[in-house]
């Protein structure tokens, strides 16, 4: 009853943000250690959590504010995206104080965002992700990841009484924007 009261009083976009946040923070940590850090990109800014399994798989969960048309001052409010990536290690080498790995990942993205041709209106996007990155893990517990990802999917937005579905263009057109994740590894 309490949660239904809270939900009634929240605005629609805040409900989505709350749901995504609950999903993000309730994820279990994997057995091989985990790291927490920040996500930095021209696409947006946010937080990330990475869970490494003992078989070498790295699962990455990112929640970030989508700053499309915000950084250029057109709008004041960003969108929000949650991204899951399942990284597989392709190659790597170790140095005295660091390990450098090349990773490739499929994944998924959901978000409440604007698009290139949405006229400033928000819509819900649902995409399949493909990401590649170079991960540097340092002995002192800091991990730096530099990579690119492309999102292929759809954006659904309300149009009158119905819903308009279209290709989520920003997922492809902004795929060349790199991201940098800086995390601290806990164990």
């Amino acid at each position: 009853m309490l949660t239904s009261c809270i939900a009634e009083t929240m605005k629609p976009n805040l409900k989505i943000i709350a749901a995504l946040s609950v999903m993000f923070f309730c994820l279990p940590a994997a057995g091989g250690g985990f790291s927490v850090g920040t996500y930095n990109s021209l696409k947006g800014f946010g937080i990330c959590m990475n869970a490494n399994t003992e078989s070498g798989i790295r699962n990455s969960y990112t929640l970030y504010a989508d700053t499309f048309d915000v950084l250029n001052g057109k709008y004041n409010t960003p969108g929000i995206k949650a991204v899951f990536l399942h990284y597989n290690r392709l190659a790597g080498f170790s140095t005295e104080k660091a390990r450098i790995d090349l990773l490739l990942a499929p994944g998924a993205t959901v978000g409440y965002v604007r698009d290139y041709n949405s006229g400033g209106h928000y819509g819900i996007c649902s995409c399949v992700d493909f990401s590649t990155c170079c991960l540097a893990s340092f002995d002192r517990g800091i991990e730096i990841e530099f990579g690119f990802d492309i999102e292929l999917g759809v954006l659904g937005r309300r149009l009158g009484d119905g819903i308009e579905l279209g290709l989520y263009r920003n997922g492809v057109s902004r795929g060349y924007f790199p991201h940098v994740k800086i995390s601290y590894r806990f164990r």
Partner: peptide
Amino acid sequence: RLSLSDYSSL
């Protein structure tokens, strides 16, 4: 400055 290795830092 956080020194990450001999030649890299944050």
